[in-house]
């Protein structure tokens, strides 16, 4: 993966967003938050949507608020955060599908092109490149997936 790693919302940025929300009383206006954080609208929405997909924030109307789960992950230590994120990732359809595809392989490994093709077939509304980068980066953080850049292989991280 030679792409710009900042294309998708990284976990450190999501945690930073939660921290900002918690420090400002747990909720805020989406527009004002973007202004305060100097984020472009597209960038902010991508970040907020990512945090929402993980269950860490809710966005009723034009507001944003941190959820109990969002507060919980902030309280955890570095490895506690990874474990909670792993649990959350296993609830996301894209991660569930990728895990299923990999586990069907004898060595639990697939070339990145195969994964991207399947992503675009089964998740036509998602950008497969971004979805793949998210699989690699969140997956690595949560120790769910590994990725060998030299061979372009995605595999299930079994901790060995």
């Amino acid at each position: 993966m030679e792409g710009d790693p900042e294309q998708y919302p990284g976990i450190s940025r999501i945690m930073g967003l939660l921290k900002v929300l918690e420090e400002t009383g747990g909720e805020g206006d989406l527009y004002q938050l973007g202004v305060d954080l100097h984020l472009e609208l597209g960038e902010e929405l991508q970040l907020v949507r990512a945090a929402e997909s993980l269950g860490f924030v809710q966005t009723p109307g034009s507001e944003i608020e941190i959820t109990e789960l969002g507060r919980e992950i902030l309280k955890k230590n570095i490895n506690g955060r990874k474990h909670l994120l792993r649990e959350r990732l296993l609830t996301l359809p894209v991660f569930q599908a990728a895990l299923r595809w990999l586990e069907q392989e004898e060595d639990a490994t697939l070339p990145s092109e195969t994964v991207k093709n399947r992503l675009s077939e089964q998740f036509p509304h998602e950008d497969s490149e971004t979805a793949f980068q998210t699989l690699v980066n969140w997956g690595r953080y949560a120790e769910l997936f590994g990725y060998r850049a030299d061979r372009g292989d995605l595999y299930v991280d079994r901790g060995d």
Partner: peptide, 21 residues
């Protein structure tokens, strides 16, 4: 690597990493 939260990234190259990582 485990302590700083990088477990899972052992074989990643710097170009694959965000600034935070």
């Amino acid at each position: 690597i485990d302590k700083v939260g990088l477990e899972g990234y052992e074989e990643a190259y710097p170009r694959e990493l965000s600034g935070g990582m």
